[in-house]
């Protein structure tokens, strides 16, 4: 029966982690909606998460749009459906590629940065110092990052949508010989509110996941530099996996609503 022991240990450890994560999430959300707020820190985090992520998200979006146009052309030209390329590009970008690619890129940038910062603060006792200075670490460290992540990701993804469609337009018009006005008209006629809205909802959820994983792993890191490194890795990996999982769940929900 000894072989059951490690299975039991792993199961209990997993359940304990889930429990800790739920308590952490609840506490953080509660502090995100209750005063006092720290507007200066919220704005600083918004700039960090939103503004400074623009180059990496923009580059990802434009290349994704360009590749999408080329690959679609390769496939669609086999059954003379090239005219559907603007539709495929805008639908793919707004519903899937915009939020998912932006989520993964921001996850690498922000989840890692939050985990490293909070982890270092934890192991150097700065988090404890906050408590002794009558400042709740959840309100001061976690809540501003939550608020910034949830609000800035939809804005980032909206911009990524525009840039991604632009990428498809550039390739289609200047490389594949599409008429510019027709391409834009097709895109505009085909895209619906729900396409963009579903992508922005996904973006808000991904922003929540990214900041949650960064804060959770950073806040609970221990053991010095190695612990902070581990926390950073765990934050990025768990955020990326959760983004892909929740992308499927949210797509399923919108598919049901749409259908």
């Amino acid at each position: 029966m000894n072989f059951l022991q490690p299975i039991g240990n792993v199961t209990f450890a997993f359940l304990a982690t889930i429990g800790r994560l739920i308590v952490f999430t609840g506490t953080a959300l509660l502090h995100s909606v209750r005063s006092p707020f720290y507007p200066r820190i919220i704005v600083k985090q918004m700039i960090e998460i939103g503004y400074f992520s623009l180059p990496v998200v923009g580059l990802t979006a434009i290349f994704a749009g360009m590749v999408l146009a080329l690959q679609s052309f390769t496939g669609f030209s086999r059954f003379s459906a090239e005219s559907a390329i603007p539709n495929v590009v805008v639908l793919s970008i707004t519903r899937e590629l915009g939020p998912v690619l932006a989520g993964l890129m921001v996850s690498g940038r922000i989840a890692a940065s939050i985990a490293a910062e909070l982890g270092t603060m934890r192991v150097t006792e700065q988090v404890d110092a906050l408590t002794t200075l009558s400042t709740n670490p959840f309100k001061y460290l976690v809540a501003p990052r939550f608020i910034a992540g949830i609000t800035m990701m939809p804005i980032l993804v909206f911009i990524a949508d525009i840039i991604g469609v632009l990428g498809g337009y550039l390739v289609s018009v200047y490389q594949l010989g599409f008429n510019a006005a027709n391409y834009l008209q097709n895109t505009y006629d085909f895209v619906e509110f729900i396409d963009v809205f579903s992508g922005l909802v996904k973006a808000a959820v991904f922003g929540f996941i990214i900041t949650l994983m960064g804060c959770y792993h950073g806040y609970h890191s221990k053991g010095g530099a190695q612990g902070v490194g581990q926390a950073t890795t765990n934050a990025v990996v768990s955020a990326s996996i959760l983004i892909l999982c929740f992308n499927y769940i949210l797509t399923g929900i919108f598919f049901a609503v749409d259908g």
């Binding site: 270092t120 150097t124 006792e125 700065q126 110092a129 002794t132």
Partner: peptide
């Protein structure tokens, strides 16, 4: 009513 000096000072970077 408490003040605390931490081992490595724990100043906010």
């Amino acid at each position: 009513q408490i003040g605390m000096l931490f081992q490595m000072a724990a100043l906010f970077d």
